[in-house]
Design a protein around this nucleic acid. Structure first.
Length: 125
DNA sequence: GCGGTGACACAAA
DNA sequence: ATTTGTGCCACCG
């Protein structure tokens, strides 16, 4: 078992399951993951969770999680952002050098992911 | 128990 | 459109 993997049932445990289910070539926002985890407003905690998983991303497509603006969150860590963009490009996601991409086009179907709460998107897609 | 931190989101100016 | 401030949450010391 991976060292960094959080305890099942915990918040981070849910984040892990959700992120792990994001299909290749697709992306979701931190807010989306938060919503799926049950707390729509826990987007910030999602970032913290992913940060904690760093180094143990074996099998965890953490790079498919971006911010609601449809861009990669640099947050001062250019190294991570660069790697994230590279990994996405490798999956066929068109990411600009600025880290921007078309959310409407590459966003994963949230209903195809694990959901521990209600999808608050209100849309019926 | 409290305050600080962080890969966020949203509203206001 | 960009910057700033406020809200929110989990985790750590």
């Amino acid at each position: 078992m991976n060292r960094m993997e959080p305890a099942a049932g915990s918040f981070r445990g849910r984040v892990w399951e959700i992120v792990r289910a994001i299909p290749s070539g697709r992306v979701v926002s931190y807010g989306d993951v938060a919503m799926l985890s049950g707390d729509r407003k826990a987007a910030r905690a999602v970032g913290g969770a992913l940060r904690a998983f760093a180094g143990d991303h074996d099998g965890l497509p953490w790079h498919r999680v971006i911010n609601s603006q449809g861009t990669i969150s640099f947050r001062g860590d250019l190294q991570r952002a660069t790697l994230q963009r590279l990994l996405l490009l490798r999956e066929g996601v068109v990411v600009s050098e600025q880290g921007g991409l078309e959310m409407a086009r590459f966003r994963a179907n949230l209903r195809a992911l694990p959901c521990y709460g209600a999808l608050d998107d209100g849309s019926d897609f």
